[in-house]
Write a protein that binds this DNA or RNA. Structure first.
Length: 402
DNA sequence: ATGTCC
């Protein structure tokens, strides 16, 4: 539904909403994004909620420009699944070994890296095309193979493939699922280029400030694009290291691997013209494109195949979406509430903050129902062993303040 | 989501 509140004499780009009763703030942010003179078309996914500039769950096509905060702070945030060659029962027989594998092969928490950094060919890429990126190379190296914080996780679970697919037979498998991004490096790049975009667009009113863009033909725009693509390869390397390390630790091999970004921008065709499509907290869902849509730590993740719906610019939700802020969740629930729920569902939690409690999320099943015209479900993954960042030691202080 | 100005 096109909206046109900000400028009466200039037509806003149209956008459609999937899902019901979405966060009013997210809708307002989408209105704002579609009112930009560069905007061509938008879409709002059923897991949408408020973010910086573009909402999480926002899809935005623009002309010849890129908006750093429409890509997101965690540039190239990504999910990856590896199906193991071990039967699922192998996990039940030897949980301790799987736990140690997750503990050993990645690191969680803000600022965390490896004391003995991992190696990856992505570090041989060009990191010297601008000073901002060059100065971050050392941090990026130390954080290779880490998972970060927030909603990021590493987990083992049971994958149920609904039919013969991906060269595998219908049935039950043991799988590793991870959610990580470009860590401190990507965040620093996002922050730098968004500040630069704001400086280049002093004419933007305050409510559009976080949507400041870089012209793709400008040196700044080209530089951001190059940095964003490097972060794409870097985030992919992080998952690669985790999966290679964990599987090696277990003496397992991968019989199927699936992965996708959900914070990124792509050059795509929209009708006859080339546009830049930003997907911020949105899964690419082009025709027959496989994707992963995670729920919370106690609800399923869905393996999907895109239906190529053009109204949504070939996109889908990237998860259940929060229904409660982190602060509200920390105020309302205790650690024991989380443990109780996980026990009921037979899930072992290694660590997580209360702000990630499943009750703070919408129902993933509802979100999937609301996007039946965007993706087809091919399988579900039920988490069994979950690791997330341990509680933030300032969390209590912050909730106390509000 | 990050990292530190708490």
């Amino acid at each position: 539904m096109p909206r046109n509140r900000e400028k009466k004499n200039q037509k806003s780009a149209p956008y459609r909403i999937w899902g019901e009763n979405l966060d009013i703030e997210a809708i307002r942010q989408m209105d704002n994004a579609c009112s930009l003179p560069i905007s061509v078309k938008g879409a709002l996914m059923p897991d949408a909620h408020k973010g910086y500039g573009l909402p999480i769950g926002g899809v935005l096509a623009v002309k010849n420009a890129v908006i750093p905060y429409a890509v997101g702070v965690d540039i190239a945030c990504r999910v990856k699944m590896s199906v193991l060659d071990l039967p699922f029962q192998e996990y039940e027989k030897n949980r301790g070994k799987f736990k140690i594998a997750l503990e050993t092969e990645t690191r969680f928490g803000v600022g965390q890296g490896f004391a003995r950094p991992r190696q990856h060919r992505v570090m041989n890429d060009n990191w010297s095309f601008c000073p901002q990126v060059r100065n971050l190379k050392d941090k990026a190296w130390k954080q290779l193979g880490t998972s970060g914080s927030g909603n990021h996780f590493a987990e083992f679970g049971q994958l149920m493939l609904e039919k013969n697919d991906f060269g595998l037979e219908k049935g039950i498998y043991l799988a590793l699922l991870t959610h990580s991004g470009s860590r401190g490096t990507g965040a620093a790049i996002a922050k730098h280029y968004s500040a630069l975009a704001k400086k280049l667009h002093p004419e933007l009113p305050r409510h559009l400030n976080n949507l400041a863009w870089l012209d793709l033909k400008s040196s700044e725009g080209e530089e951001y694009w190059q940095a964003m693509e490097l972060m794409g390869r870097y985030a992919s390397a992080n998952h690669d290291i985790i999966h290679t390390g964990v599987l090696h630790h277990l003496g397992a091999i991968s019989i199927l691997s699936l992965e996708n970004h959900h914070n990124f921008a792509w050059k795509e065709q929209l009708g006859h013209r080339e546009v830049i499509v930003h997907r911020k907290g949105a899964t690419p869902a082009g025709k027959d494109v496989p994707g992963i849509i995670p729920g919370s730590m106690a609800s399923p993740t869905f393996i999907v195949r895109g239906l190529g719906n053009e109204a949504a610019m070939c996109s889908a939700a990237h998860g259940a979406g929060r229904k409660m802020s982190r602060t509200a969740a920390m105020k309302k629930f205790k650690q024991s509430d989380m443990i109780k729920l996980l026990n009921q569902r037979g899930i072992t939690l290694i660590s997580a903050g209360i702000d990630e409690i499943p009750m703070a999320y919408k129902s993933i099943e509802t979100v999937m129902d609301q996007q039946k015209d965007l993706v087809e479900i091919l399988g579900r993954f039920d988490p069994k062993l979950v690791k997330m960042a341990p509680p933030d030691r300032y969390a209590k202080k912050r909730t106390g303040k509000k």
